[in-house]
Computed example of a mutant assay.
Amino acid sequence: MQTLYTAQALATGEGRDGHVTTSDGTLDLDLAVPKEMGGAGGATNPEQLFAAGYAACFHSALRVVARRAKADVADSTVEARVGIGPNGSGGYGLAVTLVVSLPAVEPEAARQLVDQAHQVCPYSNATRGNIDVTLTVEGAR
């Protein structure tokens, strides 16, 4: 693979109860363990950051495949839901649900676009076989 861009982030402090910054300073956030996991909450966490990145990346991939198919995705949205829990082996695992809304696209065409985007998206390619990813498609009604 020819690398086109490399993102750099530095985590400091206590990991999930710490701080993250990017090398260019555009991201500079405190982290907190969610209340649901026994923490104080009140700040972002790695799962929220992963969800935001996956949603944005998948939406870009969707727009690329839609442009090729000449499909109208002007009002489309992608919501990523990232769950974390014990994996049964002493560690933790993630599960992702992507909820894609394509209000101007008929359901069958919407499903095809989402399936194609899932093949193109770098996050999907990175997680394939490692994380359960469920694709939910909301097309025209």
Rank of each mutant, 00 (worst) to 15 (best):
E138H: 07
A51R: 05
M1L: 12
R63F: 00
R68H: 15
R16F: 04
L98K: 05
D24S: 14
L94P: 05
F58G: 04
T134L: 11
S23T: 13
S101M: 00
S23C: 08
P107G: 07
L29M: 11
G85E: 05
Y54I: 01
P103M: 09
Q48E: 15
E47S: 05
H118T: 07
H59P: 02
A117D: 03
V114C: 03
Q116S: 14
A95D: 12
G85M: 04
N125F: 05
Y92C: 11
L62C: 10
V120W: 01
A43H: 12
A140G: 08
T3H: 13
G83L: 05
G91A: 14
T22S: 13
P107W: 03
L27A: 13
I84Y: 09
A80E: 05
T97M: 08
Q119I: 05
G25F: 07
Y92Q: 11
A126G: 12
T44C: 10
G85L: 05
C121K: 06
G13F: 11
E14N: 15
A117Y: 03
N130V: 00
S101R: 08
Q8M: 10
D28W: 11
A9K: 10
F58W: 08
G41K: 07
G18Y: 01
L98N: 06
G88P: 00
G42Y: 07
A55H: 02
S60Y: 10
R111V: 06
N87W: 07
T77N: 11
S124L: 02
A9G: 14
G91C: 13
T136H: 13
V120G: 02
A43K: 11
R16N: 10
D17W: 07
P46G: 10
L135Q: 04
A104F: 04
L94G: 10
G90Y: 03
G129Q: 04
V33F: 08
L10V: 15
V99T: 13
K35H: 12
A71W: 02
T97D: 12
V65S: 01
G39N: 05
Y5R: 10
A80Q: 07
V73D: 03
Q116N: 13
G91Q: 13
L4S: 14
Q116M: 12
V65Y: 00
T127H: 08
L27W: 07
G15Q: 04
G93T: 10
G93M: 06
A7H: 04
V82P: 00
N125I: 08
G13A: 15
G85D: 06
Q119R: 15
L102R: 01
R67Y: 02
P122K: 03
C57W: 00
T22M: 04
P46R: 06
L62Y: 04
V65D: 00
Y123C: 02
D132S: 13
G39W: 04
V114L: 01
A126M: 12
G139P: 04
